[in-house]
Amino acid sequence: MITLTLKGKLSIPLEADSVTPDNLHDKSNHQIKEQTVYWGNKKKTIGDFFEVEGERSDRITVVGDCAKVKLLGHKMSFGAVHVKGNTGYNTGSYMTGGAITIDGNTADYLGAMMEGGLIDLKGNAGHFVGGAYKGETAGMTGGEIIVRGNVGHETGSFMRRGLIAVGGNAGDFTGLFMLAGTIVVLGKAGERVGANMSRGSIILMNQARLLPSFLENGVVATPAVEIVLGRVRELGLAPAGGGRYVRHTGDVNAVGRGEILMRVVNRNHLQV
């Protein structure tokens, strides 16, 4: 086990993409301290900002309020990173394997462009969870992201594969331009869910106002949803099971083969 403990409070952000099992697993304690991090416009080392304990391990624990520490677990492909605190922008971006656990909150672009692995966030996330960077036309292509708190806008934008499950509420444009994959929102979803989605599934446990470009297509109780929810439960969230779902297909302005499944909360639902 390698433990990095943040020495002080940061106001200028730190770009710490060197903090991955891929980079640190074969390094001595001294070598870990010498790894590059970027602080503002200065090139610094991990040792400048963190107390470093341990060496040569694919398990990294980061301790402290790292809300200004960006890119933790960036491009990691194996091992585990456990952050006992908050993290900053782009945590787990471009990740291809392994696991990241964050006890606190994080900023925007959690797991952006992710290809594989697991991210488990105990707190809240910012915008673009599992999203695509600006201009990209394919975002997350694999892996799983669990957020126990709330997320911001554009969760899973341009998502191509994988699973994003949100325990709390989601902002607007969840599943924007989604190409495939699955998003589950246990709390309330904001406006314009699935805008421009061409394929993929969005499962909402509460009602949301949908765009005119989604067509209601009957009430279903499908085993496919239960399989997804079963996996979400394995990952530690607790969605209700066995319900019925109103199926909406769209976005007819895109390919139109996506679906939004909205759980039937009460009998009056269909009149709402």
């Binding site: 406006e191 314009r192 765009l211 005119p212 470009s213 007819v252 302005n253």
Partner: peptide, 22 residues
């Protein structure tokens, strides 16, 4: 605005929104 534009795109592409107004 977004909802209105979505409805206009549908109309442009030959789909009539299933509502009286947006």
């Amino acid at each position: 605005d977004y909802e209105v534009l979505t409805a206009m795109r549908m109309l442009t592409n030959g789909n009539r929104p299933d509502m009286d107004s947006v």
